Simulated scan of single mutants.
Amino acid sequence: MTDFTIAAHPREENGRRPSRRLRRTGMVPAVLYGDGKAARSLSIEARLLRKLLPDERAYTHIITLRFPHGNETALIRDIQMHPYKEEVLHLDFLRVHAGERVRLHVPIHLLNEGTCAGIKAGGVLHRALVEVEVEAPVDRLPEAIEVDIAALCIGESLHLSQISAPAGVTLVPLLHEDDKEIVSIHNPRTGAEAEEETPEATA
């Protein structure tokens, strides 16, 4: 799905019981807030969300909510899922406009795992971060932060300060001098090594 426009319907009733009734009709309750405007209750067809949400890009791209009397542009801010079903219970949308700088968590994609020097040498990959908070103009939010690990060797790691973010994108943890580790390659412990480190039992 490449068109991030979705039909939205005004919702008059709020609360648990009206929300349950709404879900039984195939609709999902949601709220739209931000940009200095009053919060707006709405609902979206569950079948449309099942098409939209599997696309990872939907979480970092502007979504146009098409109401019967005008459109709103927003980002998905939060999704409440059913505890054990693949079912969306509620969504939060944040109003945005072109040029506005926003903060959002985006996934970290590791590149060249298959040719990583440390993995080819028998090392074990450890992922310390799977996503990172970024700040960027809303129309330049990256779909993901890509990290090339081809040259990473056993005993080495990569931190946020060692990667290049896309132009105009700031890695928020670095603003707070929090240079998080992204990934590292560990030397696997063999059974023989483990036995050598175990003190011998005394008689």
Rank of each mutant, 00 (worst) to 15 (best):
Tyr33Pro: 06
Gly34Thr: 09
Gly34Ser: 09
Gly34Val: 10
Asp35His: 13
Asp35Val: 02
Lys37Phe: 00
Lys37Glu: 09
Lys37Arg: 15
Lys37Met: 12
Ala38Phe: 03
Ala39Gln: 11
Ala39Thr: 15
Ala39Trp: 12
Arg40Trp: 12
Ser41Ile: 02
Ser41Asn: 14
Ser41Glu: 10
Leu42Cys: 10
Leu42Val: 12
Leu42Asp: 08
Leu42Thr: 13
Ser43Asp: 15
Glu45Tyr: 08
Glu45Arg: 15
Glu45Ser: 11
Glu45Ala: 14
Glu45Lys: 06
Ala46Val: 09
Ala46Lys: 05
Arg47Val: 13
Leu49Pro: 04
Arg50Trp: 00
Arg50Ser: 12
Arg50Phe: 08
Lys51Val: 13
Lys51His: 06
Leu53Lys: 05
Asp55Met: 07
Asp55Glu: 13
Asp55Gln: 02
Asp55Gly: 10
Asp55Leu: 11
Glu56Ile: 01
Glu56Lys: 08
Arg57Ser: 14
Arg57Ile: 07
Ala58Met: 00
Ala58Ile: 00
Ala58Phe: 00
Tyr59Gln: 01
Tyr59Asn: 02
Thr60Asp: 04
Thr60Arg: 07
Thr60Glu: 09
Thr60Tyr: 00
His61Thr: 11
His61Lys: 15
Ile62Asp: 04
Thr64His: 13
Thr64Arg: 08
Thr64Val: 12
Thr64Ala: 15
Leu65Trp: 15
Leu65Thr: 04
Leu65Ser: 06
Arg66Ser: 01
Phe67Glu: 06
Phe67Thr: 01
Pro68Gly: 12
Pro68Trp: 04
His69Arg: 15
Gly70Cys: 03
Asn71Ile: 01
Asn71Gly: 03
Glu72Gly: 07
Glu72Lys: 06
Ala74Val: 10
Ala74Arg: 02
Leu75Pro: 08
Leu75Gly: 12
Leu75His: 00
Ile76Asp: 10
Ile76Met: 06
Arg77Cys: 02
Asp78Tyr: 02
Asp78His: 12
Asp78Trp: 01
Asp78Val: 04
Ile79Met: 05
Ile79Thr: 09
Ile79Phe: 13
Ile79Cys: 08
Gln80Leu: 11
Gln80His: 09
Met81Gly: 09
Met81Cys: 02
Met81Gln: 06
Pro83Lys: 00
Pro83Asn: 11
Pro83Met: 02
Pro83Trp: 10
Tyr84Cys: 01
Glu86Val: 06
Glu86Tyr: 13
Glu86Trp: 12
Val88Phe: 03
Val88Arg: 06
Val88Cys: 10
Leu89Asn: 10
His90Gln: 04
His90Ser: 12
His90Ala: 13
Leu91Cys: 14
Leu91Trp: 07
Leu91His: 10
Leu91Pro: 14
Asp92Lys: 04
Phe93Thr: 10
Phe93Ala: 13
Leu94Arg: 13
Val96Asn: 03
Val96His: 05
His97Glu: 12
Ala98Lys: 02
Ala98Gln: 04
Ala98Ile: 03
Ala98Gly: 01
Gly99Cys: 11
Gly99Arg: 05
